[in-house]
Structure formats: structure tokens, C-alpha cells
């Protein structure tokens, strides 16, 4: 099948790629761009480990046909977090709260947290639960993840 060509801004850098139109965004990210921080846990949008942000909106990249992501889209994966002050604040909070155990869900979980705090840096408990309902963690029982999000919110750089 004929490939499509897309130019995106990925983690702050412009990238042009060609791929079959229905290739999963997850595969383009992991295999074509080698951002292997993005994880596949279920392949059907349930676990959230493959969550990335498209123009700031979290999506499960296993359910996105890469051809459907238009030119000019800003894609943020876990690897892009440390390039921003907010991203670093979030990472620090996850480390100091003890929110990461096996770490396999963490890249997706961080993206859900980042999407939330970018829009709403003073989230209520309910906001936090709602924003992370699409991410499954089997290790932590979520308690320390919630603490990390609260901690990140406290330290969130506000302009």
C-alpha cells in the first residue's frame, strides 16, 4: 500500500516520516523514531502505557492510525518531558513520592499527569482520579502516583 508522509513536531524537534497510513502511532514512535520509552501493555487502549500527547491531549497511541495524525501536530512522549521545566518538576515529583515501581506504566502515567497539570495545575482529588482513569498500574496501588501529582501541582511553574 502506498505510504503517507507526515511532518510532526516530536518532543520539540521537527520530524518527517513515511509509513503505511494505518500503521499504529505506537509503532511509528517505538520502531521508526526509536522512542522506546513509550510502552505497549495491551494493544487495545485499556492499559494506557502507550499514552502520548497530541497537541497536549493524551491518547493511547496503540489506537491511533498514524496517518490520521495531521501535519504540524505536536507529539510529546516521555522522552520529551525533561526538556521543559514542568516536565522536570513532574519527574522529580514521581521520584520523590516513590510513584514508580516496575516503571512500565510510568511513561503513560506521566503523560496523563502532564496533560492534566498543563491544563489545570490546581487539580482536585476528583480531577486527578478522572485524568488517570485510563492508565493501569499493577504495582503501586496508585497511592504514591496520586501523591506525586499533588506534589508536582504544588511545585508547578506558574507564569
Amino acid at each position: 500500500m502506498s505510504n503517507v508522509k507526515r511532518t510532526w513536531n516530536v518532543n520539540g524537534e521537527e520530524k518527517t516520516l513515511e509509513f503505511p497510513p494505518l500503521r499504529r502511532l505506537l509503532d511509528v514512535i517505538r520502531e521508526d523514531m526509536r522512542f522506546t520509552g513509550c510502552k505497549e501493555g495491551c494493544g487495545e487502549g485499556e492499559c494506557g502505557a502507550c499514552t502520548v500527547l497530541l497537541d497536549g491531549v493524551p491518547v493511547t497511541s496503540c489506537l491511533v492510525a498514524a496517518g490520521q495524525v495531521p501535519d504540524g501536530t505536536q507529539i510529546l512522549t516521555v522522552e520529551g518531558l525533561e526538556k521543559t521545566e514542568q516536565g522536570r518538576v513532574l519527574q522529580e515529583a514521581y521520584v520523590s513520592a516513590g510513584a514508580s515501581q516496575c516503571g512500565f506504566c510510568i511513561p503513560g502515567m506521566l503523560m496523563a499527569s502532564f496533560a492534566l497539570l498543563s491544563k489545570n495545575s490546581r487539580p482536585t482529588e476528583e480531577d486527578i482520579l478522572d485524568a488517570h482513569g485510563g492508565n493501569i498500574c499493577r504495582c503501586t496501588g496508585y497511592v504514591k502516583i496520586i501523591e506525586a501529582v499533588r506534589l508536582a501541582a504544588q511545585n508547578w511553574p506558574r507564569k
Binding site: 500500500m1 502506498s2 503517507v4 503505511p20 497510513p21 494505518l22 509503532d27 492510525a65
Partner: peptide, 12 residues
């Protein structure tokens, strides 16, 4: 999920 990559997709 390579089987998906065999399908043609149009973007009207």
C-alpha cells in the same frame, strides 16, 4: 499489527 498496514487508507 502489521496486518493493518496492508489496508489502503484515503484521507478526503
Amino acid at each position: 499489527m502489521k496486518k493493518l498496514e496492508k489496508s489502503d487508507c484515503r484521507f478526503p
